[in-house]
Design a binder for these strands. Structure first.
Lengths: 159, 159
DNA sequence: ATCGTTGCAAAGCATTTGCATGCCT
DNA sequence: AGGCATGCAAATGCTTTGCAACGAT
């Protein structure tokens, strides 16, 4: 019963940090008739274990530690499922890869990417409040402030 | 001398609308030791002839009318050169293809994409002024307001 | 006659998809 | 046992690149 022992061991590890996130997600999944699998566990743990916004590639690497051999497409499918569930959000950042993060990790916030160094900066949730109000009033456009990263030059790269 | 006659004919056509743009660009190119070629002419004309923001694909189709057989990679290389020149700018719009437009066509402006229908909306250049000021003051971040399209739901798609 | 530009074809990168197998519940 | 999820491999969409041939100056 090595497999079972390993599984239990892994679950214990998760309780350290990402455990609560994993358990909550498991419940939400089952409530929809979907399943909490090892790949999904590993993806949630990867996201919960980093304060950064991660690319699919980074999540793959991280999840591979907890669950060796996970497939790249499984990561994408897991992220999609978790997004449907409302657990994960993604950010489009210029032409770089999409970044993913847990919705629970921080309150709603916006992002900016530096065109030069590629760094992603978290911004207060209300930086776009004025713009959002104007867009709504003038164009009827309902802004989703966190979905794309603003672009420009970060402090270090602005010369 | 059919080729020469055709070339002259094309140049005459361009004077109708895009001509001035093409001539100005030609001068800028030559000032740098670069050349005004038929593909580049066709790309500038395509951009000048549309008030929309065009994708590389759309530019290819349009440029192919003026210069049949242009290659896709030539379009990309032309756009890159024209961007270096400051004549062309591009917009990143969610996960859709990059959009290109002439910098001369309008004053600086921002953009928004509808997540649902994909439509791109032009916004007044100053919608992000408040956000830009805050980013600069609080984070030292210099915002480039036109480089990425904001995302959300357009009037028609917001239900 | 130079040497910047092009066409072609192939590669690159991020992401998606079809299908048989595997494993949660 | 039943059916959702996975792995694999191939395909997709957008964009870039190497290299020999072409054409603007």
């Amino acid at each position: 019963m090595d497999a079972m022992a390993d599984l239990e061991h892994q679950r214990q590890l998760e309780r350290g940090l990402a455990g609560s996130a994993v358990e909550g997600v498991a419940a939400s999944l089952r409530a929809r008739g979907e399943r909490m699998t090892q790949p999904r566990r590993a993806v949630v743990a990867a996201l919960a274990g980093s304060r950064e916004h991660l690319s699919a590639e980074e999540i793959l690497v991280d999840a591979s530690k907890a669950y060796p051999g996970v497939n790249r497409s499984t990561i994408y499918r897991a992220l999609e499922t978790l997004a449907d569930l409302g657990v994960v959000q993604h950010i489009h950042s210029g032409r770089a890869a999409t970044l993913y993060h847990l919705t629970t990790e921080q309150g709603p916030h916006a992002h900016a990417t530096c065109d030069t160094c590629g760094r992603v900066i978290d911004l207060p949730g209300d930086v776009l409040a004025t713009a959002a109000a104007r867009l709504r009033a003038d164009e009827g456009f309902v802004l989703d402030p966190g979905h794309v990263a603003l672009s420009g030059q970060c402090r270090d790269c602005a010369s």
